[in-house]
Each structure stands twice: as structure tokens, then as C-alpha cells.
Amino acid sequence: MILAQIPASELRTRLARGHLALQVGPFRFRVTSPLASVSEGLATLYPDFELVAEDEFIDFHVSVTPPAGVRRWIRPQANFSFDGRVPFKPLPADQAMPMLEWGLNWVISNHAHQYLMLHAAVVERNGRAMILPAPPGSGKSTLCAGLVNRDWRLLSDELTLIRLTDGLVVPISRPVSLKNRSIEIVRGLGRHVVVGTPCADTGKGTVAHMRPPTDSVRRMAEPARPAWVVFPQFIQNGEPTCEARGKSTAFVELVHNAFNYNLLGLAGFNALSGLVDACDVHRITYGSLEQAYTAIDALTGE
């Protein structure tokens, strides 16, 4: 059963009472929240996700709830909590849905050490994955949204999970996080694109999330073999460029992009060097999504 199959009123009740658990890639999350914005956000962004039955094992129990005291009513706030622990300061209540997304990122990146975790988007075509590592502001999420609205499958927008046992990328096709101007750009990608309610004035400016394509969500159990690492950089009015990078440079850059490289020790080194060995590495700059598509099609031989 998928989330879209429960009526809105029942979703709201189940969410408020702690009876909503979702299969999100390799993880099972129980999400609890009395807030309407979270219930609506889930209905918009997670409709195709599988529900987990009541008595199953849950990996992570999270909630987004109003704090006790006056901030429940006056300039209301929301707290993210991971199984009773509150890792962040509260945010204004209208940011509850982005807070849930950020909270899930935090929970995964702090606990899922059975994977080498890279801060990178990752997409797949014909069984081969392309990893797009980049710092915030480089246009990685916009490019990722663009690619998955062409013929690429979304594996992840934020967290690339490399399985330590076989080096495959394990999908976690959660909503794609968009900021500021990219929200309009992604909305313009087509009528089928669904973007959730934007939240203004967050720590990252205005943010909104794009619903992951249904096909990507349905195929979340299919891992993919990494084939390319592409460092993207959007440059306003810039000329498109594409250059091959040395593997050692790429290795070092990926170490900086990894959440748990140090923590994994030798296993992390082996996973990352295996990844770099198996991939063609390039850096592309582009002034428009069309230019980026052209460069990527050329790289992938399409």
C-alpha cells in the first residue's frame, strides 16, 4: 500500500497518532506530527512511497511537533526530534516540512554507516549511475531535477549511499530540495512536475521540494553501478565547458564531500577508491540546463 491510497483525513490522524511509517530507500521511518503542514507536505511529496505495516521493525523514529509552552501559540515553532532527542534549535512552524526533510538528512548521515555517504546528487540511466557532488549554490539540485525530468532515474538529490559490500549506489529517492530561483526553473520543466509549498525566509532563503518521479520511487530497491562522477558548476551567462579530471584530484574532492569517510577507516578508503577507479571523472560548467544536458549527453555517449 502506498501513501496516496490513504485519504487526507486519515493521513492526518495516523500522522498525529504515530501510526505512519514509510519505506524510504533502505530505511524505514516512523514520522509523527500533529501539524497540518507536515501532513499536506507528505501527501504532496511522498504519495508513491510504500507504507510499512504496524508491527514491522522501524529504523528511525522521528517527529516534528510544536514545543511546549507559549511558542505553541505565539509565533509558533516546530521541533524536530529523533526518538525523543532534539538535535536542532526549533524553527518557525511554517518551516515544519523542510525541517522534516533536513532532519531526515541528519538522521541518515549520522547513523547509516553501513554506507559510504557522499554529499552528492546521483541519477541513473541504463543501469549506470552518475554522481554529481558539489557544494551548495553550484546548481546541483536544479541539474538533478532537470535530469530526472528527462530520462534519468532519481537515486538521490542529497545523499549518495555507496554500499560497502559491493560498491553499488543504493537509491533513496526522496524529494529534491530547491532554493530561491531554482524553484521557478524546476516548475517550468513541465506540467507533470510537482513542487511543494515554498517556505520563505529559511536559513537557506526560500526553499521548496520537488516530488520525486513515480518511476524512481517504484524502483527504489534497484541499486546501480557508478559510472561517472561529474562536478557541476552553474555560472550565470557562462560558456559551457567540460574537462576530464584526474582521479587523484577527484578522490580528494570526494573525501571532502563525504559524511563518514574518516569514520569508516579502511572500508571507506576501499569504497571510495573503488568508486573513483570505476568512474569517468569530469567537471562541467554551464549557463543553462540545456548546455548541461548537451555536455552530459556527450559524456555518456548519447
Binding site: 524505514r28 521493525f57 529504523d59 554507516h113 553501513q114 569514520l263 569508516l264 572500508a267
Partner: peptide, 21 residues
């Protein structure tokens, strides 16, 4: 152990090995 629980315990064990180093 159920496989899902085992994964969490294994991860904790691996983390402790790293802490030893």
C-alpha cells in the same frame, strides 16, 4: 536477530572498532 536490527548492531560494532583505532 531480525536482519534489520542486526544491521544497527553491526554498525554500532563497526563504529566501536573505529573508536579503538
Amino acid at each position: 536477530l531480525p536482519e534489520a536490527a542486526r544491521r544497527h548492531l553491526d554498525t554500532a560494532w563497526n563504529l566501536s572498532q573505529r573508536h579503538r583505532l
